[in-house]
Computed example of a mutant assay.
Amino acid sequence: MEFYTIWLFVVAAITLLIIPGPAVIYIMARSIDQGKKAGLISVLGVSLGGSIHVVAGAIGVSAILMTSATAFHIVKYIGAAYLIYLGYKALTSATEHMPIETPKSAHKQLVKIFYQSAIIEVMNPKTALFFLAFFPQFISPSAGSVTEQFLLLGTLFILLGLMSDGLYAVLATTIRNWLLKRNVNSKLQNRITGYLYIVLGVFSSFASPSKT
């Protein structure tokens, strides 16, 4: 691929990434609820989920979502239901103070967050559709293997996403610290994150195959 094409892709990708989307809202909810480490782990999980979409798109698997309305809706509603479930758990939590965690339990919690984040991103069909709609604009069959070009662009997008999402996680942590300094109890934090998850789940449920 020509350097100019790659540079154009990077500029377009950065422009899109700085606009908060479902993944950013999820990452910020995690960061506000559980702190910077949980937020950054969520970023890594979302990146893994995005990488799976990139590989699937490169080999054509994601195209099924564009041709099968049933497959699209199954994936969409499972993902939306899981987000709403996370919101419900946050809203019904009665914890007033952060529980004391041992290093072992904290590690297990971070691993759980990582896999949850990856699953949520994998179950977001709009990510697959976005990649299939956006990447081909910068791919040229005359430049070599289409699969390799797709993977290259996907890798660049994931790396840029890591940086962008990481900044949002840090921003959300600042909001969390602001709440803590003002003695905002954990119930209010749970409400904030719970409603964020639910809104995100409802928003995801209205995704349509024709939109990215």
Rank of each mutant, 00 (worst) to 15 (best):
A23T: 15
V24K: 00
V24S: 04
V24D: 02
I25H: 11
Y26K: 07
Y26L: 11
M28W: 06
A29Q: 00
S31C: 04
I32D: 01
I32F: 03
D33V: 00
Q34W: 10
G35S: 07
G35H: 02
G35W: 02
K37A: 06
K37G: 00
A38R: 04
L40G: 00
L40M: 14
I41F: 09
I41M: 10
S42L: 04
V43G: 11
V43A: 11
L44C: 04
L44N: 00
G45R: 03
V46G: 04
S47H: 07
S47K: 06
L48I: 15
L48N: 06
G50D: 10
S51P: 00
I52A: 14
H53M: 06
H53E: 07
H53F: 05
V54Q: 01
V55E: 00
G57V: 05
G57M: 09
I59V: 15
G60H: 04
G60I: 02
A63T: 13
I64S: 14
I64T: 15
M66C: 05
T67R: 15
S68V: 05
A71L: 07
A71S: 15
F72M: 08
F72P: 04
H73M: 10
H73Q: 12
V75W: 07
V75R: 01
V75K: 01
Y77M: 09
Y77H: 10
Y77D: 06
I78S: 06
A80F: 03
A80C: 03
Y82P: 01
L83V: 06
L83P: 01
Y85S: 11
L86Y: 07
G87K: 03
G87C: 09
K89H: 11
A90I: 01
L91I: 13
L91R: 03
S93I: 03
S93K: 09
S93E: 05
A94R: 15
T95A: 15
T95S: 15
T95P: 00
E96S: 08
H97F: 14
M98R: 15
I100M: 09
I100A: 14
E101I: 08
E101L: 15
K104H: 13
K104D: 11
S105P: 00
S105E: 14
A106K: 14
A106C: 01
H107D: 08
H107C: 12
Q109D: 13
L110R: 06
V111Q: 12
V111K: 13
K112L: 13
I113T: 15
I113D: 08
I113N: 11
I113E: 09
F114M: 08
Y115C: 11
Q116F: 05
Q116I: 02
S117K: 12
A118S: 14
I120F: 05
I120Y: 01
I120H: 02
E121F: 03
M123N: 02
N124D: 12
N124S: 07
K126Y: 03
T127S: 13
T127P: 09
A128L: 10
L129E: 02
L129C: 07
F130H: 05
F131G: 09
L132A: 14
A133Q: 08
A133E: 04
F134W: 10
P136T: 10
P136D: 13
Q137P: 11
F138H: 06
F138S: 09
I139T: 10
I139K: 10
P141L: 08
P141R: 13
S142C: 05
A143T: 12
A143N: 15
A143R: 12
